[in-house]
Design a protein around this nucleic acid. Sequence first.
DNA 1: AGCCGCATTATTGTATACAAATCCTATTCG
DNA 2: CGAATAGGATTTGTATACAATAATGCGGCT
Lengths: 226, 226
Amino acid sequence: MSRASDRAFETIRSMIVSGELSPGEQLVEEALADRCGVSRTPVRDALRRLESDMLVRRNDTQRTFVADWSLDDVADMFELRAMLEGHAAKLAAERMSDAALEELRRCNAELRRAVKATPPNVDLFLELNRDFHALILKVASSRRLATLLATLIEQPVIWRTAHHYGVDELARSSAEHDELLAAFARKDADWAQSIMSGHIRRAYHAYADAHHGLTAIDAADRKRRA
Amino acid sequence: MSRASDRAFETIRSMIVSGELSPGEQLVEEALADRCGVSRTPVRDALRRLESDMLVRRNDTQRTFVADWSLDDVADMFELRAMLEGHAAKLAAERMSDAALEELRRCNAELRRAVKATPPNVDLFLELNRDFHALILKVASSRRLATLLATLIEQPVIWRTAHHYGVDELARSSAEHDELLAAFARKDADWAQSIMSGHIRRAYHAYADAHHGLTAIDAADRKRRA
DNA sequence: AGCCGCATTATTGTATACAAATCCTATTCG
DNA sequence: CGAATAGGATTTGTATACAATAATGCGGCT
């Protein structure tokens, strides 16, 4: 997709992920078109893409809204992610090359530096974490799997809450990455799968712990807006 | 989506699934618009949807083509399906109600009748098989999972080859469904998961057996057309 | 002959106007 | 007072024209 459509997609996407557009809020094509400085046509394209990423949902009469996720939905999402990323790690272990392994090591070394900085560089951590997982997915080399996972990562839920991670959580992440590297080095597919699955599940509980007190407020807030 | 856009989607979709449009063939918006009797706008919508279902792919310059799948891709697809449908069966076993179980039983009874007819009614089998799996997915009640699986089922690969099933394969399917029903009745989630996973894997091998001799021809055929 | 550059054609992208559907509200009727 | 509803306002759907980009083929050049 060329300029206008991409711009619309990225603009709307970042507005959703940043929370500038609240969960449950209605998205009106013409208003978005104005904000993006394009016509409705590319906005419609963008909304379709966002819909397939499940960042927006449509009601039965074709109105679009920013997706809102219940705790159950989030739990669901993490469970699927644990399963699929575990599978990816397994495939990756079987297909890991020395070069790719070395790149993963470099990535995690940088990641650890970001964690150990004072104060820890959370944005950099997130970026390198993304890279690390993306690299594994690449080694797994399953187009299908990549597509499925794409809709599970990069969720606003994750992004808005990642900053709540404590330093200990961040450090634990890079330690788990080390374990993954060990499993990859030994080409132990089942081990890699187990670690990855646990890695994601731990992330879920970190999320849940940080949020279980907020959901009631969120729900009330959402209702008020609607 | 209202009439025109849906019509375009369904028309193009069925042309792909039936093989009227060959894998690798370029899809031109205006030509499709003519064939569907609508303008390019709804066709573009339809192509986006087909793209997210992975029935078409786009090259780097935005031309669209009917998706073509290598044997590896298909194996990949079945493996993911085995994993995800297995997970769905597990969730379903935990959440199965008596009413839903009864409905599944009725469905499989009908399915068995379709198999035992002379000659076996393969189209009816396929439809009921779909219903059976959809029902399980519904009981699993995970929106996310449903979305992910949607892109894996209903592939032309599957549809075009289902007719190659022998009577014994069909009978074995309904027998496996019976086992699933037993697992559901006892709410044995792990059992349900194992059976479902095996069920899909068996389907894969039936596919592979029927096709491993054809791929060379298919490839040549595809090349000739391109 | 082979290849490069340019004009031509084919195809997709975007804007816009208008049509259809949906939503909202005010008003009427029970 | 509440429910049904009619009609205006809002929003989405579709068609079409034109712009931008990519593919194709031609002609000249080496």
